[in-house]
Write a protein that binds this DNA or RNA. Structure first.
Length: 572
RNA sequence: CGGGGCAUGGCGCAGUCUGGUAGCGCACCUGCUUUGGGAGCAGGGGGUCGUGGGUUCAAAUCCCGCUGCCCCGACCA
């Protein structure tokens, strides 16, 4: 393609409302444009990249034996009533009515539709297992779309759904999908981890997430360096406390702590370490209007997912707001503590073994010291409601875990019979009896991968595309082509040659000044750059640089540029 | 949805407090010069100041409503 034919508009300045680097660079490099909150147009360059991702995903899905189909994006409400999700799904589901007042939604996912297809198409166990997939635009009316296409409302997803007679068959396909996902992310050239995950609202038993590692990631994952244990912190069990509960040695005492609210402030003020104190968080209980207290060691962080799974605690976890706490408990949140608090206490195991600890006295500006369980407060339940932290021991006993941030780009689930049961999707088994099928589902966020790849591959100048995702492999930069016939004809010849050889080549034939041309080249991040200029052409050579090492120029031969390039372009 | 902020040409902003002929940088167009890291000079086009109402001789500026967007918390590929 010739850049003169493509109205590429790049931005020198960063749009003010783009927070993360990938969003900034996608806007600056002209990959996407925002239409409304969470809605983006994919401009020619951006679309090319998204298509590259799609192609690799499609190839590996096909290789795994999955079969592609395409379902409607708009789905009738009846199906969602059948599965029960019309009521469950909440405002994230975009609902609307047609001219006949029939209710529909824009599909955020397709379990209902595929299960409907399956129950019509699949009659015999002989047709199983089968794994259907599609690549399609989804819509989820996110509470807060942000980070550009990373968390957009409309996005492209590859979703696959497998059907099985038994769980052994599901296990097999699940493993095949895991391997296919690994091949996909390997081919895309991304650094990723797959982790045990919480299966969340979609339900089912086993679940793994694939995360692209990036500091801007919204998820925290923990992994062992000694074994292949890796998990989303959401569901990684925290280690049981090493030291058992010891007997009290101190009396309960009040300490004035004016204007000291956070654990850090109080610890500093009283001269006690944070791990010798306890923090108290008030959340809604299972019964409407009821409150419960969560107690954690001062230096630990609450794990909302683990907490919400505990009986007696509202799921999803919902914090009581400050005003409510003040009204019902008579003190600000910074002064709460388990001693004398008239709420059920859900105490993290690490907090439950403390003795002589510090906590709020449920009065503004006052804390207790020398607090002890049994004597001063009694747990309703001792449980695991905190995050596993970097450096703590791995749940599989293989040594310490590391923690890292990740962007969730893939998620595979064993669904079991949640949908097939509800929607009566059965086949005849070898005994001639009707049997409810068992299901798996497997998602990849195509458009999110584009953003995730940029988060992982950029520098101050711009994007550095991995070969497999680059909109073009090679960028030809003729310098002074309007003034120098040799440059122009050489560039034209090389462009033709590359095209005939099947190399995806982009020529910047806009006759820009070199500085502008290079700055834009760096911004859009095409991996292989060849400069055609009078200066080097006089000596019968060209200048080659890889986007990743802009400081290292190589001489490239004019006569054998194709061979030169082919040796450097990674096979896909 | 709760809390905070913003809305002035395509982008980034000033002007708003203290009402008085709408401005800067980038981008865009024309010409000349320049040509290996976002050029220089000269000229030019483009804005009902988000929207509806109110106050006033006069509103981007003050008041009220609405809308949109961004940021912080609970959801997800």
């Amino acid at each position: 393609m010739r850049l003169s034919r493509l109205p590429l508009t790049t931005l020198k300045e960063t749009p003010a409302d783009a927070e993360v680097m990938s969003h900034q660079l996608m806007l600056r490099a002209g990959l996407i444009r925002m239409l409304a909150a969470g809605l983006y147009s994919w401009m020619p360059f951006g679309l090319k990249v998204a298509r590259k991702v799609e192609t690799i995903v499609r190839e590996e899905m096909d290789r795994s034996g999955a079969v592609e189909l395409l379902m409607p994006a708009v789905q009738p409400a009846e199906l969602w009533h059948e599965s029960g999700r019309w009521e469950q799904y909440g405002p994230e589901l975009l609902r609307f009515a047609d001219r006949h007042e029939r209710e529909f939604c824009f599909g955020p996912t397709h379990e209902e539709v595929i299960t409907d297809i399956a129950r019509r198409e699949l009659k015999s166990y002989r047709q199983l297992p089968v794994n259907y997939y599609q690549i399609q635009t989804k819509f989820r009316d996110e509470i807060r779309p942000r980070f550009g296409v990373m968390r957009a409302r409309e996005f492209v997803m590859k979703d696959a759904y497998s059907f099985h007679l038994d769980s052994a068959s599901l296990d097999e396909t699940y493993e095949e999908m895991r391997l296919a996902y690994c091949r996909i992310f390997d081919r895309l050239g991304l650094e990723y981890r797959y982790v045990r995950a919480d299966s969340g609202a979609i339900g089912g038993a086993l679940s793994h997430e694939f995360h692209v590692l990036a500091d801007s990631g919204e998820d925290e994952i923990v992994y062992s360096e000694q074994s292949d244990y890796a998990a989303n912190v959401e569901q990684a069990p925290a280690p049981a406390p090493e030291s058992p509960h010891t007997e009290p040695t101190q009396e309960l005492q009040e300490a004035d702590t004016p204007d000291q609210r956070t654990i850090e402030e109080v610890s500093e003020f009283l001269g006690t370490p944070p791990e010798q104190s306890v923090k108290t968080l008030i959340v809604q209980g299972e019964e409407d209007g009821s409150l419960v207290a969560l107690i954690l060691r001062g230096d630990h962080r609450l794990n909302a997912v683990k907490a919400a799974k505990i009986e007696g605690i509202r799921s999803p976890l919902c914090f009581a707001d400050e005003a409510e706490v003040r009204k019902k408990l008579g003190c600000p949140v910074g002064s709460l503590g388990p001693a004398g608090l008239d709420l059920p206490l859900y105490v993290d195991a690490s907090a439950a073994v403390l003795s002589d600890f510090v906590c709020g006295a449920n009065r503004e500006g006052v804390h207790y010291t020398g607090v002890n369980w049994g004597r001063d407060a009694n747990p309703e339940q001792v449980c695991d409601i905190r995050n596993l932290e970097d450096g703590e021991s791995s749940p599989d006993g293989s040594g310490p875990v590391r923690s890292a941030r990740g962007i969730e780009v893939g998620h595979i689930f064993q669904l079991g019979d949640k949908y097939s049961q509800a929607m009566n999707c059965t086949v005849l088994n070898p005994d001639g009896k009707e049997q409810v099928v068992t299901m798996g589902c497997y998602g990849i966020g195509i458009t999110r991968i584009v953003a995730a790849a940029i988060e992982q591959n950029h520098d101050e100048q711009g994007i550095i595309w991995p070969d497999a995702m680059a909109p073009f492999s090679v960028l030809l930069c003729p310098i002074g082509a309007d003034r120098d016939d040799t440059v122009r004809t050489t560039a034209e010849t090389l462009y033709q040659q590359c095209q005939e050889a099947g190399i995806e080549v982009l020529m910047d034939d806009r006759d820009l000044r070199p500085g502008v041309m290079f700055a834009e080249a760096d911004l859009v991040g095409i991996p292989h750059r060849v400069v055609i200029s009078p200066r080097t052409l006089e000596q019968g050579r060209l200048e080659y640089r890889h986007r990743r090492n802009l400081d290292e120029a190589e001489d490239a031969p004019v006569d054998e540029l194709l061979e030169f390039l082919q040796a450097r372009i990674a096979p896909n």
